[in-house]
Design a protein around this nucleic acid. Structure first.
Length: 597
RNA sequence: UGCCCGAUGGUGUAAUGGUAGCACGAACGACUCUGACUCGUUCUGUCUAGGUUCGACUCCUAGUCGGGCAGCCA
């Protein structure tokens, strides 16, 4: 059985299986294809989100498990919605997600390349072979195929399978009928081939305004499948295209362009989400109607990812960005790939999660706990442990002299086989988190309380002797004595106390901004009532000024940290600058005690 | 009142006519210089009704429930 290494490279998990992979495996057994070729085909009209991550991992996963290839192709057939901003972000996100895992399967094409005229099985054909990503390569674009797709449309007309229709948008809709009522034929359905050819040529030449005419497939207006009721193949749009420029004023629709794009790239398995199930008949009809010389791609559908407490809809995410509910597409609270990355989620954790949820045709909602578990699992293995105090309260160790420094060895990662250590400075004044002290402790409180004892992690046991309050009754200082015999190497190092808390030296620590993120929505299914914005979590972001152990001043973007007892943190890649660090909390540690508070 | 797809513990999935398993979650316990991690115990399931079969989560029929389909969006 094939296995894949986890983050540490040590353990291994079995390769996933699911109904799509079963189909591919069957085809491999049959030697049906020389090579398995899949594709990830986003429209560049928004940022990629966690739902796309599932599709990316499915398509690239199948490619890598079968020594195949997966093309990144932009399905850019509707210029009015698309932009290069999205092309760039999507390309970045895909490469980030698959880096070190499936980048060797990623298919790009030579910059500026279009399909090549080739001979397949003795007949004229077009094909675009992939190249590896690099300086002279770029992703595939459906818009690079406009010339060929136009040619295929002409061929359909010649075969009597497509016609130019003059019906207005309103009439087109009225003629289509309804799911439970057959449509009726367009009055233009029986135009001659010659007339259709002439009209289609003139559509391309720009003789008609937007919406004046369309090219439609001639299939069956009484079909129970709405997509077979003479679907539109081309529409007129006098607008420039972000990739193809101003060369075209007619643009193919998804159903016509997608199957042909798959064909031109030699895709074997065209995997998409469930809502395209009804389109499959049209996908097949188009390809089969053209009598193409190479073997045809086939479409397979799976259920998209739904995640609890999360919204995955480009349109709704766009609303959050536009009304400034979040700071942008890459706000760390967003379920976008760029947001998750900025939050500090490792690509490996995202992959682990989306492959773990499986691939089925059942429209399910995955519990966010599964996602959070995957993130913690990765980070627990790899994150460096550090001490940091989010909401500091001053603690004076009265039996340590001012200026005295006691060195402590702190473990960097107890999960390592041979953990390394670093030095921490214990001084007379330290900070602890205010959550770790209670003047009136609740039942089963293990932390510091008046007269109580607690261990300062890596240092020693301390006892709280006295509270100092200001005139308003606010605690300003805790005065404690340190039992230095409980330090490492001391005679009482093994003395047990129930609680161990984190701390930092008041003098040997740095002050930085830390952003604490919580889930964006307060309910499991934010859009169940169609009013997702009403369920925004008002406390999804809390900014604190924290005290961090000094070593964190040298943190780098690539590093992941566990602030002990608090959670996993990483530098914010956008707002951190030398001398002004900003940390994001990626996720809290699991807390079995807190919910009982 | 059309057509298509689907339904397994609270959640997500596996079992492809032959022992209903795994993971998340929850509860309890052990361990612990992180109330983390780890370990142990426990919890909870095949939508319904018929049928085929020695045997059905699996196949068939009907029903129920959920999703999808009527953009010149993808």
């Amino acid at each position: 059985m094939s296995v894949e290494p986890n983050a540490s490279g040590a353990a291994a998990t079995p390769a996933p299986t699911d109904f799509v992979r079963d189909i591919v495996a069957q085809h491999v057994t049959e030697k049906r294809y020389a090579k398995i070729v899949t594709r990830f085909p986003p429209e560049p009209n928004g940022y990629l989100h966690i739902g796309h991550a599932k599709s990316i991992c499915l398509n690239f996963g199948i490619a890598r498990e079968n020594n195949g290839q997966c093309n990144l192709r932009f399905d850019d057939t509707n210029p009015v919605k698309e932009d290069v901003e999205y092309v760039d972000s999507i390309t970045t996100d895909v490469q980030w997600l698959i880096a070190g895992w499936a980048d060797h399967c990623l298919g790009f094409k030579p910059k500026g390349a279009h399909p090549e005229a080739v001979t397949s099985n003795g007949r004229p054909d077009f094909f675009r072979a992939p190249v590896a990503p690099g300086a002279n390569a770029e992703p595939f674009f459906a818009s690079d195929y406009f010339e060929q797709i136009y040619g295929y449309a002409v061929e359909l007309i010649k075969r009597g399978k497509a016609y130019v229709c003059d019906l207005s948008p309103e009439d087109t809709e009225a003629y289509r009928g309804a799911p439970d009522r057959p449509g009726k034929d367009s009055p233009f359905r029986h135009r001659s081939v010659a007339e259709n050819l002439d009209l289609f040529t003139r559509m391309r030449a720009g003789e008609f305004p937007d919406g004046a005419r369309t090219l439609r497939a001639k299939i069956d207006n009484s079909s129970p499948n709405m997509w077979l009721r003479d679907p539109l193949l081309y529409r007129i749009r006098h607008v420039a295209h972000h990739h193809a420029g101003d060369k075209w004023c007619i643009y193919p629709l998804y159903d016509f362009a997608h199957c042909l794009s798959d064909y031109l790239e030699g895709i074997t398995h065209s995997i998409c989400t469930l809502e395209f199930d009804a389109h499959r008949a049209l996908y097949d009809w188009t390809l089969e109607s053209l009598d193409l010389p190479r073997s045809l791609p086939h479409q397979y559908e799976f259920a998209k990812l739904n995640l609890g407490y999360t919204i995955v809809s480009k349109r709704k995410l766009l609303q959050l960005v536009q009304d400034k509910s979040v700071a942008g597409w890459d706000d760390p609270r967003m379920p976008t790939i760029s947001g998750l990355r900025r939050r500090g989620i490792p690509a490996s954790a995202l992959r682990r999660f989306v492959t773990g949820v499986g691939v089925t045709k059942f429209d399910s909602v995955t519990d966010v706990a599964v996602f959070e578990h995957a993130v913690r699992e990765e980070l627990n293995a790899s994150a460096q442990r550090r001490l940091a105090v989010l909401k500091p309260i001053k603690l004076v160790l009265t039996n340590i002299a001012p200026g005295e420094v006691l060195e402590c060895d702190a473990t960097n990662n107890p999960q390592d086989e041979t953990p390394t250590t670093r030095k921490l400075a214990l001084t007379r004044e330290v900070f602890i988190d205010c959550d770790d002290f209670a003047e009136v402790p609740p039942p089963k409180y293990f932390r510091l309380k008046p007269g109580g004892e607690v261990r300062l992690k890596y240092a020693c046991i301390i006892k709280c002797d006295e509270l100092v309050k200001d005139s308003s009754g606010q605690i300003t200082e805790l005065r404690c004595t340190a039992d230095l015999t409980t330090r490492a190497g001391g005679p009482n190092v093994d003395r047990k106390v129930k609680g161990t808390i984190h701390w930092v030296s008041a003098t040997q620590s740095i002050e930085t901004e830390v952003r604490l993120y919580d889930r964006l929505f307060t309910v499991p299914e934010p859009d169940a009532d169609g009013e997702f914005k009403k369920h925004l979590n008002p406390r999804s972001l809390e900014v604190v000024t924290a005290r961090l152990e000094t070593s964190l001043g040298a943190a780098t973007l690539a590093e992941r940290f566990q602030f002990e007892r608090l959670g996993y943190f990483a530098l914010d890649p956008k707002d951190s600058a030398p001398g002004r660090l900003v940390f994001n909390r990626t996720i809290t540690l699991k807390d079995a005690w807190a919910p009982k508070k």
